[in-house]
Amino acid sequence: MQTRATPVTPSSLERFNTAPAEEAVATLLTCLNSGHWAERLTSHRPYPDLPSLLAAADEAAYDLSPDDLAQALAAETLPPLPEDTYAAAYTALSAAYAAYEARFGHVFAICLDGMASDEALNHVLAGIRSRLANDPDEERLIALEELRLLARGRLTRIAGGRERDAAGRAAQAGPGTGGPLPANPPGPPPR
């Protein structure tokens, strides 16, 4: 009896390392919409392992210029609300988003990776309320850190071999979150 060999397929990281530059940049832009960040990570390929890629991504994120940060924030969307959100919470969150955007001129970015969906709404509301007290320079640093965390989570899902699962979650959660919040209920958008 002859056993069939299991075909060896390249890992997601190997595919990223060997992809044409344009494809790698396009993939990275789904993690953090900064051309400078994506091109820098692409130009330093190949990465021997995921921790090396994540370290390079962190370093590149810390080096984002104010224009790069503005570009990345402009592409983010608000975290969607859980399906069972009460109308009052929906109204409170919509008002908090509007106050944040009016104060800082960009969408509220927050990483919800690892956050249970039933805790996410309170975490987002508390985050917005506390960050509204920040001065614009302080808030830019916090927003940058949240974007770095979002990019890390997205990159881990893509390069860590879970891109199919991540694509499903990303389509459900949207690019503004790192967490597993369900899609918005019918009604007005949260902005």
Rank of each mutant, 00 (worst) to 15 (best):
R154D: 03
D137T: 11
G161N: 04
A167R: 15
R152S: 08
G168N: 15
L141F: 07
A171T: 09
G168P: 06
G160K: 06
L147N: 09
R164V: 09
L147P: 06
L149D: 09
E139G: 01
I142T: 11
G168W: 15
G168A: 15
G168S: 14
E163A: 12
G160D: 13
R154S: 06
A143P: 04
L141R: 12
I158T: 06
A167K: 14
R162T: 03
E146I: 00
R148D: 15
R154E: 03
D137M: 11
L141V: 07
T156C: 03
A170N: 08
L155W: 01
G168D: 15
E163T: 08
L155D: 04
T156E: 14
E145K: 06
R162L: 06
R152K: 13
Q172E: 14
A151E: 05
E145T: 05
R140I: 00
G153K: 00
D165E: 15
R162I: 00
A173D: 05
A151G: 05
L144I: 02
R154P: 01
A143C: 04
I158E: 05
G161F: 03
E138A: 12
A171Q: 12
L144F: 02
R154L: 00
L144Q: 13
I158C: 02
E138T: 13
T156H: 09
L155R: 00
E163K: 07
L150T: 03
G160E: 11
D137S: 13
G168H: 15
D165H: 09
A159Y: 01
R140Y: 01
G160W: 09
E163G: 07
E146L: 00
E145P: 00
A173Q: 10
L147Y: 08
E163D: 13
T156I: 00
D137I: 10
R140N: 13
E139H: 01
E163Y: 08
L149G: 06
A151K: 03
G174C: 08
E138C: 05
D137R: 11
T156D: 14
E146T: 00
G161Y: 03
G160T: 13
E145R: 07
G168Y: 14
A151F: 05
I142S: 08
R164C: 05
L150N: 08
R140W: 02
L150A: 03
G174I: 05
E138I: 04
E139Q: 09
T156M: 03
D165G: 11
D137H: 13
G161E: 06
R148V: 14
L149F: 05
R154C: 01
L141K: 09
A143T: 07
L144P: 01
Q172A: 11
D137L: 13
E163N: 07
G160F: 11
D165V: 13
E139A: 02
R148T: 15
A173W: 08
D137N: 10
A171M: 12
L150M: 03
L141A: 09
R164A: 10
A143W: 04
E139K: 00
G153C: 14
R154F: 01
P175C: 07
A143M: 05
A170K: 04
